[in-house]
Design a binder for these strands. Structure first.
Length: 264
DNA sequence: GCAAAATGTCAAG
DNA sequence: TTGACCTTTTGCA
């Protein structure tokens, strides 16, 4: 389930479970054997996240991980049991085993490589050093629709297909609005809500964007199907107004929106 | 047993 | 713009 909130939550978990420990590293599946050999026996002294990228500092190098669409990390207690499935990387610390499966990227990089990666990533709503004004300046120079721009990781780092649809709905902005027509006030509202929503996502480990009164159950605890206003609800009622949710391709992904709540 | 889908990105044309 | 790639899970024979 990897959007930015997943990665920051993962960073927190890796830090608390394996931080400061000497690791043994291996690639049971074999595709990261040389990288694992480089970090085997070294100490994990820092963990960093930017957008959907995770960085683990082992002495003078970094392990760079990007989960992509399918990647997953699981933790289990020591002693390590035989790996199940295609485990790209296994890290074993004092009492925790980390297994990484299916990432788009898992590589050992230098500090310079890491700087270069940060340089091509945009404002991360979950980082203190985020610069939303700079993101806005760049946004307003573009003719592309806001729905496409929100997925551009060099503008805002960490938003994925679920948050894109839900944040635009919460802001009452049509995904088709051109970036350059978005006002400073609209952007400020969208950014603030993005920070709020992603932080909630880190806390809960889930993407729940609906307000309590829009969820089906009065308990307020969202079921899987209650969690979104429009995402993956094509043809179903918008959870705020009841109009049929529309869907289209935008930036090579399916965008969902409510034509009533989100007028152009 | 096999196809399809899933919260993503990049390189080739 | 399209296709390739990463892996697991689900649903339908």
């Amino acid at each position: 389930m990897p959007e930015g909130h997943t990665i920051h939550r993962l960073a927190r978990d890796v830090r608390s479970r394996l931080g400061g420990q000497q690791l043994s590293a291996a690639s049971p599946q074999g595709r990261f054997s040389s990288g694992a050999a480089l970090v085997d026996g070294r100490t994990l002294h820092r963990v960093d996240a930017h957008g959907k990228h995770l960085f683990l500092a082992v002495d003078d190098r970094w392990i760079h991980i990007h989960l992509g669409l399918f990647g997953r990390v699981t933790f289990s207690p020591t002693p390590a049991s035989p790996p199940r499935g295609a485990v790209r990387l296994r890290l074993v610390g004092d009492d925790t085993v980390l297994d990484l499966r299916g990432p788009t990227a898992c590589e050992v990089i230098s500090p310079d490589d890491k700087r270069a990666l940060h340089a091509r990533l945009g404002a991360d709503p979950l980082r203190r050093d985020a610069d939303p004004e700079r993101a806005y300046e760049r946004l307003t120079r573009r003719r592309l629709p806001i729905g496409a721009l929100l997925l551009d990781q060099s503008l805002v780092a960490g938003i994925g297909n679920v948050y894109r649809a839900e944040l635009l709905h919460r802001a009452a902005l049509s995904p088709h609005r051109e970036g350059r027509s978005v006002s400073a006030a609209e952007w400020a509202g969208l950014w603030d809500d993005t920070v709020t929503q992603l932080r909630a996502g880190v806390r809960s480990g889930r993407i729940v964007t609906t307000a309590r009164e829009h969820r089906d159950r009065p308990s307020g605890r969202a079921r899987r199907t209650d969690a979104h206003y429009v995402y993956r609800r094509s043809g179903l009622p918008c959870r705020r107004c009841g109009s049929a949710v529309a869907a289209d391709e935008m930036a090579a992904r399916t965008i969902f929106w409510c034509p009533t709540c989100q007028s152009v």
